[in-house]
Nucleic acid binder design. Structure first.
Length: 479
DNA sequence: CTGGGGACGGGGCCC
DNA sequence: CGGGCCCCGTCCCCA
């Protein structure tokens, strides 16, 4: 015989005990603030605590203390409230940090809710567009500079938490019939309060930024290398580990955010680099075409809404706030650029190596450095070299310069490369189409680098009928 | 293990 | 508004 209310009553009882500090056998220290909780509950709710507490299970009689520095007390309170109530209080400001913390604590339910929250924020933003225009224009017109009634959106999963410290002074109205999606209005004073909260979050931004990189979310970088992530910022934690589930969460999140482009892998698998690069090449073919209607552009198209949600006016200076983090920029275009780090899209693929970039300038810089050997410096002895005193050497798709001495020392007979004929991307698109061996568009030619074992040479194969299957002997492969 | 350098990402801002 | 430059921070590799 099941009594359905038993579970919720049990949870309520535990929550009550926690509030009254009854039978609490675990202390969690977050930036100096102490939270009391029950080991059993934490153990059952978080993979992180499961591991931590099972390691300290020998000391069952002793109270356990855990210390965290990577998220704020407010964030942990949201999570702890969820653990004891099943209710998660998410806002546009805290969702990233809550998700980051949940990722660290290995609480997949929270991560899922955060993902849903973010997705919903994008959906809802569309509906609010018209509303924003009418509001913001009227507000701006009324006094020229200030917006007396900026509004911000906040969402809550279920109702308010038992003792949420957030949003205690805001009015709530329903939006779109979504039972857990509320739109919250701020008066000017309330907005200031919110801004001070934001400022505090901004201070935390740098610490969270690193973690966000780990999440593969906004700051995700260098993904094709599947970099092993540094754990330096976690070294101070009681245990420093990244679980499989966190890894998976990162992947899932990345895929959800950035299905239009750059990916760690698919599903829960971490793909080997070779496969990743193959995928990236496929993606480069597809997404380069689609880059103009990319995720960032979609977000950008919704920008008025987002700005309505997040914009603020500081010292007569309009600034634009990113809906996904605390970053603010002065120009809309900068926000558009910034959004790419959230969507994960990299519209600029390097045709030489398949690596993709968020900006054309990064691609150019990469191409000059890696594939054009533009630096007149001997890679070995670091001396300055000229065309007379050194040569360009190719190693795979990578080119660099060696001085004549180092060339001899390495036993390489270099074959000069006409770098002038190989324009880097974007310098002169028309010329590029005619002359360059490596292209940064995607569909024109396919290039293969073939290693000839018999000669030890790297052959670049350019698939272009007009070039009569030009096989170009490039350089000795010195690897 | 550590420091230096290279590669890259991202922000500010000028043109 | 996009392109581009400069600067800084981070990560990784290597000596």
């Amino acid at each position: 015989m099941d009594i359905s209310s038993h579970q919720s009553r049990l949870l309520q009882q535990l929550n009550e005990q926690r509030r009254q500090d009854l039978f609490c056998d675990c202390s969690i220290l977050v930036e100096g603030k102490v939270f009391k909780a029950h080991r059993n509950v934490l153990f059952a709710s978080s993979g992180y605590f499961k591991m931590l507490l099972s390691q300290s299970s020998k000391d069952m009689g002793q109270p356990t203390t855990a210390t965290f520095h990577m998220f704020s007390p407010d964030t942990f309170m949201v999570i702890l409230d969820f653990v004891y109530s099943g209710k998660l209080s998410l806002t546009g400001q805290n969702v990233i940090e809550v998700m980051s913390a949940a990722s660290y604590l290995q609480m997949t339910d929270i991560i899922s809710v955060c993902k849903t929250f973010i997705k919903s924020s994008l959906d809802i933003s569309e509906k609010e567009k018209d509303r924003y225009f009418s509001l913001s224009e009227k507000d701006l017109n009324s006094n020229g500079t200030e917006s007396p009634c900026l509004y911000s959106t906040e969402w809550r999963v279920e109702s308010s938490p038992p003792h949420s410290q957030m949003n205690s002074d805001v009015g709530v109205s329903m939006v779109g019939g979504n039972s857990w999606s509320n739109c919250t209005y701020y008066s000017a004073s309330q907005w200031n309060t919110q801004q001070s909260h934001l400022t505090k979050q901004t201070q935390r931004r740098h610490s969270i930024k690193k973690r966000i990189r780990h999440l593969g979310l906004p700051q995700s970088t260098d993904v094709p290398h599947c970099k092993s992530r540094k754990l330096g910022d976690r070294a101070s934690e009681p245990t420093s580990h990244i679980s499989q589930s966190e890894e998976q969460t990162q992947l899932d999140t990345e895929v959800d955010f950035a299905h239009a482009g750059y990916q760690h892998g698919l599903g829960s698998e971490v793909l080997p680099r070779s496969l990743l690069e193959t995928q990236q090449e496929h993606e480069s073919s597809r997404s380069a075409n689609k880059s103009k209607s990319s995720k960032a552009d979609e977000l950008y198209a919704n920008m008025p809404t987002i700005l309505g949600v997040m914009g603020s006016w500081i010292e007569d200076d309009v600034r634009f706030k990113c809906p996904f983090c605390t970053h603010m920029v002065k120009r809309k275009a900068d926000l558009k650029r910034h959004l790419r780090c959230h969507t994960g899209e990299r519209p600029y693929p390097c045709e030489a190596c398949g690596k993709r970039f968020t900006r054309l300038e990064h691609l150019r810089s990469h191409f000059r450095t890696i594939h054009q050997a533009c630096k007149p410096i001997c890679r070995k002895c670091k001396r300055h070299v000229t065309d007379m005193t050194g040569q360009v050497v190719q190693e795979g798709t990578r080119r660099y310069r060696l001085c004549n001495e180092c060339l001899v020392e390495a036993g390489i007979e270099s074959i000069p490369i006409d770098l002038e004929a190989e324009q880097s991307p974007g310098f002169s698109p028309e010329e590029e189409d005619k002359d360059s061996r490596w292209h940064f568009g995607e569909e024109h030619r396919t290039k293969e680098v073939v290693e000839d074992d018999s000669t030890g040479l790297v052959i670049q194969e350019v698939d272009d009928s007009e070039d009569e299957a030009e096989k170009k002997e490039v350089k000795p492969n010195i690897s």
